[in-house]
């Protein structure tokens, strides 16, 4: 059938699309007018963000760290942050704008989101203190970890034969969950969450 065969629904008007089309791509497509500085970002951040993510993006409890972790990706305990891990700056604008602050998503102005983006990038030493984020500057920000991403699935990375007999010599139990005291109750009422 050709387009419009069923004819259900209504045409989406430009205004309606504008109200919902909030996504932003690495090439800057989707970024609105407006701008924000690192300093402005610091103010907004203190008001809406630091309570969960810490004054310098260091995280609080199990709320995510937003800065730091440089060079940790090959370590035993990697710290994946905006600075150490994220491949694109656009994602930061997009995500803050769509999902933060956690308890009131999509409540910030575009200028505020630009400012916060500038601030978080600066916390990660990716941009200088005089950086002004806008739809021209952001797509040009090169994230430190961008080139470490492989956007193709290398799997299957394990290729096994279906062995049926004498498939291995020894079997040694190397670890057990017994006695670790990490398992919530699996009968009766739910365990109370630690955060409540």
């Amino acid at each position: 059938e050709s387009a419009g065969y069923y004819g259900y629904g209504e045409p989406a008007t430009k205004e309606q699309i504008a109200g919902w089309d909030i996504d932003v791509r690495p090439d800057g497509k989707g970024l609105p007018e407006g701008s924000g500085t690192v300093d402005e970002g610091m103010n907004v951040y203190e008001t809406y963000c630091s309570s969960c993510h810490g004054a310098f993006g260091e995280g609080m409890g199990r709320f995510p760290k937003l800065a730091g972790g440089d060079g940790s990706l090959t370590e035993d305990r990697p710290e994946k942050t905006v600075g150490s891990y994220w491949p694109y700056a656009s994602t930061l604008w997009d995500y803050i704008h769509r999902a933060m602050p956690f308890f009131a998503p999509q409540s910030l102005t575009d200028d505020q989101v630009y400012a916060l983006t500038a601030y978080v990038l600066n916390l990660n030493y990716i941009v200088d203190g005089d950086f002004v984020a806008n739809k021209e500057t952001l797509p040009k920000v090169k994230m430190p970890n961008e080139d470490n991403f492989v956007w193709e699935d290398p799997r299957p990375d394990i290729h096994n034969e279906r062995c049926m007999k004498d498939c291995r010599d020894t079997v040694e139990v190397t670890d057990s969950a017994v006695g670790k005291n990490l398992t919530p109750s699996t009968t009766g009422p739910l365990d109370k969450g630690l955060t409540e």
């Binding site: 699309i17 109200g19 909030i22 409540s107 575009d110």
Partner: peptide, 24 residues
Amino acid sequence: VGGALAGISPRLGAAETQYPPEIP
């Protein structure tokens, strides 16, 4: 697209619709 700094969720209100272009 975006709200006002002053109030969180400034567009919430009983008389509002929840469909485009409004954000529910």
